[in-house]
Nucleic acid binder design. Structure first.
Lengths: 127, 127
DNA sequence: GTAGAAGTTAACGTCGGTGTCAGATTCAAG
DNA sequence: CTTGAATCTGACACCGACGTTAACTTCTAC
């Protein structure tokens, strides 16, 4: 499939897809005229890349990580080096801390929302 | 207290503290010579600001939210407007989605780490 | 009063994934 | 062929919290 269709199916811009290729995250074949030609599996891969970016990983880390992820069809395809394992462990811990902070902030927001609802909303406290 | 001590006690740079003031997030008195003078409660406030930033909120949203948060000593001090409640609700939902993505990515990392550990680590699979 | 630590304002730099525009080329359909 | 949609490369812009430097002023302790 070509870049336009991949963009539509993943919800990722064409600009980003080209960037992913430039960063070595996403391989693409080429037609005679030089247009990119993606295999079906590119869809899953792009989605994974987005998830990892959303988790705050840098493109270089993602590039090292991707070959070690179990493909939708088959096995792990590559084993993480000790160096990579160390880096990924640090990332995982960072993500854990971030999740805790997020839970905290979400509770803060909920409390403000609830307080406002009690003051303005349904219960209509009369006094 | 002055800016240096506040920075030390919160782990936030002086640069950031001045930025917070500029964005209307953190009020400070002034000495005769123009140096900032913070009250004790500034410590808690700075920590909250950091948490909200970590959750991906923008300074303008934090500025609107802060007065509606229950202070460490007393009551809510301000009630969120309907507009603000709507915005905060959107933020809360975004945070929820982000947490789900983070959990997903963390599991991916864990799986790669575990796979590498099984291949290289303690169990030492002999063959 | 004086040296050195600490504080002030102002301005510019950073990072990195992505938006966007320009100009040229390729593809698909009539 | 020709035309219009799609794609290509390359370059510049952006966001936004914060780092960093520069040139000056104020505080503090002796």
């Amino acid at each position: 499939m070509r870049i336009g269709e991949l963009a539509r199916r993943t919800g990722v811009s064409e600009r980003s897809l080209r960037y992913y290729e430039q960063q070595g995250l996403l391989a693409a074949g080429r037609t005679g005229g030089g247009h990119r030609d993606y295999p079906e599996r590119a869809v899953d891969r792009v989605i994974r890349i987005q998830e990892l970016f959303a988790a705050g990983l840098h493109s270089k880390t993602v590039a090292r990580l991707l070959p070690c992820m179990r493909d939708s069809d088959g096995g792990p395809s590559a084993i993480a080096s000790p160096r990579l394992v160390a880096d990924l462990t640090a990332e995982r811990d960072r993500i854990d801390r971030m999740m805790a902070e997020l839970a905290n902030s979400r509770d803060v927001l909920d409390q403000v929302i609830t307080t406002a609802a009690e003051a303005t909303g349904p219960p209509t406290p009369r006094q």
